[in-house]
Write a protein that binds this DNA or RNA. Structure first.
Lengths: 105, 105
DNA sequence: AGTTACTGCAACCCTTTAGTTGCAGTAACT
DNA sequence: AGTTACTGCAACTAAAGGGTTGCAGTAACT
């Protein structure tokens, strides 16, 4: 996984409303209309957010009768978390190396 | 750590240029001016990005002579990664529980 | 003391994005 | 078959964000 696929994920997670949506979906799958009943924004706004989240691979959609339900993909979050941890550790490693060189060790 | 402190971190990580800056800082501490020499944006743009990154707690600044150097805080990334993993696992756990209930198990 | 080089602030532009309203389409249920 | 309810598309507004240029301030090296 490169950072080019990672950036949209973070961009998607960088919005409060989308977190509300994800949290609501954490309670169980739901459609845009159902979510609109619980959150203080219109269905269309939620639909846009869901599109962003789906594009980022954080949710998937499934048709159930006449409604389009969304499901949160927690595994994708964990995947992202692993990448983040790896990168953070790498930076720390490199910087401590640089520091040691600077100190002449 | 609540999501209210988490969201700005993700918002900060949701931009390509800021990743370039973080990557550059991963090679060693640098000032906004120094970074401007390596990246295809002006110093002022970089200064704004650094302010965002600092606000999110991803970098810290330190004065060295007349320049203000920035250092990437990899540990903060790892911290964020842990939170992300925890949340993702929680969603997966809840959803599998819901699924089991729905299946009457 | 004078010059140099780095930071800080302000104003501005353009694009993106979060949000809205309104309407058309269409697939389910009765 | 008719109604209901959910989705999809379009146009529009307002605010935020990434980027720029220009200038003032100031601390450091010679």
């Amino acid at each position: 996984m490169t950072t080019s696929t990672l950036v949209p994920v973070f961009a998607a997670l960088g919005d409060e409303t989308r977190w509300s949506i994800l949290a609501a979906l954490g309670e169980g799958d739901a459609s845009a209309s159902a979510l609109a009943g619980r959150l203080p924004v219109t269905r269309q706004a939620i639909a846009k957010h869901l599109a962003v989240l789906q594009e980022a691979g954080l949710v998937e959609s499934l048709r159930v009768g006449r409604e389009l339900r969304y499901r949160v993909l927690g595994s994708q979050l964990s995947e992202t978390a692993r990448n983040l941890d790896r990168i953070g550790a790498e930076w720390d490693r490199r910087l401590s190396t640089i520091k040691q060189i600077a100190e002449g060790l």
